[in-house]
Design a protein around this nucleic acid. Structure first.
Lengths: 207, 207
DNA sequence: TAGATTGTTAATCGATTAACAATC
DNA sequence: TAGATTGTTAATCGATTAACAATC
């Protein structure tokens, strides 16, 4: 489908289109023009058309875009047309918070289990999900089709754990430790730096 | 200090400079050239010099940059030269996870209390922080110098709660609900959309 | 058909990189 | 002083916006 070299700016915007289109769909609207969408999203209509056309002509002249179709198409682009199975490594508050996001499932993203160095410390389970010790990882990954690991463990352990998971076949890493995780070519890491977001807030409060 | 209209791209990078410089400082290094820093951060030396010079000449020809000084200067730009007091509204897993980030304090960001619609459900407290009911907000904010609210409550309540907090004097909002929070001119919201980050990951896994 | 709105090219704007004179 | 590296201007690159012909 998508030609090589779609800019990162466009890819960042795609999930945002998804969110707004889902809201619009939930309102029972099934047709929208780039102009209407641009007003809701506070971007230019030109940008919307330009972005979507990187992937193909999803609209229709004189009509606009079909909301349901667009959701499906953007979903395909984002790799959401097939389900993903995830594990959370690190069952602290953050790991449990992410495991509890039930709305991931509406996008085909299923969190299947949590792993923790001290699973016995986990007082309450999250949505009935199992919590295992780290030594259970090889066995679990050998028998379950997991493709993404959510890393919510302390910074110092991340590289080692990620490498171990890579060896066990995981190729997608959603990393919340305060480190830029670098991995072999065939793996992908998305590093989330929450504190950097907070510092942007303090910047804008000052200026 | 900073002239108007520093680009958003630069502001996003500033906290990242902070993180790397702190690491470098922790290694006992107190002097670094833009070239060395660029190799660590995987950006161009040109960009580093260009970015820093938007705010003033922090370096010295033939020498480079003093790490400690640079940390202080970027801290000033980011508004971290004065402490910020925060409350977390929504004491679920995510709220408790953020309240537990002890390393915010090294940047002068102090989480002082949590608030929740059902505070009695909070089994374990976080680092000894108090958890209050929502009706305690006016009294608490009248007697404590809080300037940032961390919103970790369900999407449907966010706008109403944010407006209430705004009326009680809060001007900084770090919002984790799946919504773009819009506020009056004199307030600032930083919206964190975790699921959008996950969808970027699935995109890159597919392509 | 006339009106609306896309797809797409061209123009503009902004951000990044390169280059080098200034200077420590 | 000579060497190193910044600060800063100029060149390049890329992303956004404007405009309009194509077409539903």
């Amino acid at each position: 489908m998508a030609a090589r070299s779609i800019s990162q700016a466009v890819i960042k915007r795609l999930p945002r289109y998804m969110r707004f289109l889902s809201e619009i769909q939930a309102e029972g609207i099934d047709r929208i023009s780039s102009k209407e969408l641009s007003e809701r999203m506070h971007v230019t209509a030109s940008q919307i058309r330009q972005d979507l056309n990187q992937f193909g002509g999803f609209g229709q002249q004189g009509y606009g875009y079909n909301v349901s179709k667009l959701i499906v198409e953007i979903g395909k682009i984002l790799g959401l047309d097939k389900p993903h199975n995830l594990i959370v490594v690190g069952a602290g508050n953050l790991g449990r918070a992410l495991a509890g996001y039930s709305n991931f499932e509406s996008r085909g993203l299923y969190i299947r289990a949590l792993f923790d160095a001290a699973p016995e410390n986990t007082v309450k389970d999250v949505r009935g999900l199992p919590v295992y010790g780290m030594d259970a990882l090889p066995g679990y990954l050998a028998t379950h089709n997991i493709d993404i690991a959510v890393l919510t463990i302390p910074k110092d352990n991340v590289r080692a754990v990620a490498y171990r998971l890579y060896e066990l076949g995981i190729r997608g890493f959603w990393n919340f430790a305060h480190i830029d995780l670098a991995l072999p070519e065939d793996a992908v890491a998305q590093n989330v730096h929450l504190s950097e977001s907070l510092m942007q807030l303090t910047y804008y409060m000052k200026h």
